[in-house]
Nucleic acid binder design. Sequence first.
DNA 1: TCCTTAAGTACATAGCATGAACCATTATTG
DNA 2: CAATAATGGTTCATGCTATGTACTTAAGGA
Lengths: 170, 170
Amino acid sequence: MAAIIANILHTMNNRENDSIDVLLDYQSQKLQDLIEEIVQCCKERTSFLSKKFDIPEAELRCLMLFGEERYLTAKGISQKLDVAKSRVTKIINGLVKKRLVESIDDPKDARIKLIGLTSKGQKKSRELSDFTKDLHQKLLLEFEPEQRKMVISCLEILRASMEAVKNQMV
Amino acid sequence: MAAIIANILHTMNNRENDSIDVLLDYQSQKLQDLIEEIVQCCKERTSFLSKKFDIPEAELRCLMLFGEERYLTAKGISQKLDVAKSRVTKIINGLVKKRLVESIDDPKDARIKLIGLTSKGQKKSRELSDFTKDLHQKLLLEFEPEQRKMVISCLEILRASMEAVKNQMV
DNA sequence: TCCTTAAGTACATAGCATGAACCATTATTG
DNA sequence: CAATAATGGTTCATGCTATGTACTTAAGGA
């Protein structure tokens, strides 16, 4: 089917005026489908990780925030995960129940609770980041070496353009 | 920061052996971040559409299935959306309540209900697909004309590679 | 006719996420 | 310094996403 369309396009290409519109139509449809499929694949990946590590997706995402920082606050997590702070309470509760995280009172400010990984949490977090790193390395190795740089810069273009369209839409 | 790393990489590049590993590390991290951001942007887009059209995301997705086919069955929808059939019942109920869809009994098989768009549903569906088509066209137009083909083929490579990694993971 | 399979629904359960109301505690300001 | 405002967190009500099991009805084959 795609081949047929491509063929039609090809025969029309160097002849007429509105063939440009046809090409644009075809390309934007293609773009839409590809993005759709890629996003779908990523969704499956996160769902897979959640099952593999037996931790809900939101909690996994939270666990991965402790990359650099030793301690995080509920507010900080709320901002990084881009969710309401009431949501963070739930997520932290889940992680505390699993003994992956523990919260201590901030000695300076009694309102604040400092959330930190337990050693069990550090282990899980490490495993998780190792796994996803490995996954993306495998992905990279699927490309031909010359393609790698190109794919990355294409994604950079795509991301920037998506950002631009988003802003232009307000 | 990225510039510094890139610089380090550059000075190391044509000299030593394990600089390849460093490059791979850098690139896979980059890849991970880019994919993350792109997926995030898509999530925001669907959430935006849901608010704009005042219809839950799952129902929107369902509405978009009536592209070619006149009627769909619950089972068919379940397969296309890749959700449990009990989920489909809920989704259809929502759409029926909004008078966007109606179900009639299959004259041939009393077990089956044929789901079809109402005229109101057709209108919404059309609006929706027009909007997303426009969006992707805008996106395409953000690229330089020469880039368009390249970005698309890069996404094709990416999609194929993700598929490959997924299969290789079982 | 009996049994199996298929289509669809109901219900219990779980996760994701928000927003409003609320309780402490800290900061500000008159 | 005391009243008030702002901040950090929790609780609760609500709604969407999604699954799986059990159930009903219908179709179709042995």
